[in-house]
C-alpha cells in the first residue's frame, strides 16, 4: 500500500508567514508588552537612584546621633526618630507576633468547622483596612482613653497593621511542614501541644522569621497610623514618663520634613527615607535567601 500525498497540500503553508496579519498582530503585542515592562521598571529605578543620590548625599555620622534641627538651623539629625521607630516597632512585634503565630497555629493545626474559614476571611479583610483607619481607631481606642499621644499607642496601631502579615506568613510556613512529621510525632506518643511546640513550630521557624522580618520593614515605613497616635517629638524618647508622651519616628519625620520649605529639613527627609528603604531592601533580600532554603 502506498501513501497518497494530498494533492492540494502546499508545504510552504507550514512556514511562518511574516506578512500575515496574525503574525504582525503578535509582533505588535510583543512590542507593547516590552514597552509596558519598560514603563513599569522606570519608576523603580528613578526612585531608587534618586534615593541613593539624595540620601547618601545627605547622610553623615551626625544624622544618626543628633536631634532634629529647628527651621533654618544647619546640621542636626534624627537619632531620636531612629530610637522611636525601634521602640514602636518593638512594641508592635511584642503584641502581634504571639497573637499572630498562635492564630496561625490554630488555623493550620486545630482548624475544625466554620471558625477557621471566618478567621481567614477576617485576616484578609484586616489586611485591606486602610492604615489611616487603623490610625484613627488607635487614636479613639488608646489616645482618648489614656489622654495622651504615646509610643504605646503608636506601637499598638502598628501591631494592627502588621498582624495580617504575621498571620498569613506563619500560616504558610506551618503548612509547608509535611503531615508525615506530625504523624511521626503523634506516633511516638507526643501530645498535640508537644507536636506543635517541639516538632512543627521549630521546623517552621525560618519562614516565620522571614514573615516577621517583612512585617518589621512594613512597620518601620508606616506613617499614617503614627500621625494620630505617636505624633512627633523634637526630643529623645523619655523613659521616665514610661513613654507616655509624643514620640518621634523615621516615617513621620520623612513626612514632616518633606512638606516644609527648608532645604536642610528636606535633606534630612531624604536621608531618613534612604534609611527606611535600605531596611526594606535588606529585609526583602533576607526573606529571599531564607525561603530559598527549605528544610523539608
Amino acid at each position: 500500500m502506498t501513501y497518497q500525498f494530498p494533492t492540494d497540500f502546499d508545504p510552504s503553508e507550514l512556514k511562518i508567514n511574516s506578512k500575515s496579519p496574525r503574525t504582525l498582530f503578535g509582533f505588535i503585542m510583543n512590542g507593547i508588552t516590552f514597552l509596558f515592562i519598560g514603563i513599569a521598571v522606570v519608576p523603580l529605578f528613578a526612585i531608587v537612584s534618586y534615593l541613593l543620590f539624595k540620601g547618601i548625599g545627605s547622610l553623615s555620622p551626625s544624622v544618626f546621633t543628633e536631634l532634629p534641627p529647628p527651621p533654618l538651623v544647619p546640621g542636626g539629625g534624627f537619632g531620636n526618630a531612629i530610637v522611636g521607630t525601634f521602640i514602636m516597632v518593638g512594641i508592635a512585634l511584642c503584641i502581634s507576633v504571639p497573637i499572630g503565630v498562635m492564630t496561625a497555629i490554630y488555623l493550620s493545626e486545630f482548624s475544625k468547622g466554620q471558625l477557621p474559614e471566618i478567621v481567614r476571611f477576617a485576616t484578609n479583610v484586616l489586611n485591606g483596612v486602610p492604615s489611616v483607619i487603623v490610625g484613627v481607631f488607635a487614636f479613639a481606642a488608646f489616645v482618648l482613653t489614656t489622654g495622651t499621644y504615646s509610643a504605646w499607642a503608636g506601637g499598638f496601631a502598628l501591631s494592627v497593621v502588621i498582624m495580617p502579615i504575621i498571620i498569613s506568613t506563619s500560616y504558610e510556613a506551618l503548612k509547608l511542614v509535611p503531615k508525615e512529621v506530625r504523624d511521626a510525632s503523634i506516633g511516638i506518643g507526643a501530645n498535640d501541644y508537644q507536636t506543635v511546640l517541639q516538632v512543627v513550630l521549630p521546623a517552621a521557624i525560618p519562614p516565620i522569621l522571614t514573615g516577621i522580618t517583612l512585617a518589621t520593614a512594613r512597620a518601620a515605613g508606616e506613617t499614617a497610623p503614627l500621625l494620630f497616635t505617636a505624633l512627633f517629638s523634637q526630643f529623645w524618647p523619655n523613659f521616665d514618663t514610661k513613654l507616655m508622651e509624643p514620640t518621634a519616628s523615621l516615617a513621620v519625620l520623612v513626612y514632616n520634613f518633606a512638606i516644609v520649605p527648608f532645604a536642610n529639613q528636606n535633606n534630612l527627609s531624604w536621608a531618613a527615607a534612604f534609611v527606611i528603604v535600605m531596611l526594606v531592601l535588606i529585609a526583602n533580600i533576607i526573606a529571599r535567601v531564607v525561603t530559598a532554603k527549605r528544610q523539608y
Binding site: 523603580l44 526612585i47 534618586y50 539624595k54 515605613g221 516615617a251 531624604w270 527606611i276 526583602n284
Partner: peptide, 24 residues
C-alpha cells in the same frame, strides 16, 4: 530578578513615594 524588583516596588513605604513625587 524582575519578580523580585516588582515585589520591592510593592514594599517601598508610601511616604517615600510621596517624598519622591513631591521633589521629582
Amino acid at each position: 530578578v524582575f519578580v523580585f524588583l516588582v515585589e520591592l516596588l510593592a514594599a517601598i513605604p508610601s511616604v517615600v513615594y510621596g517624598l519622591w513625587g513631591l521633589f521629582v
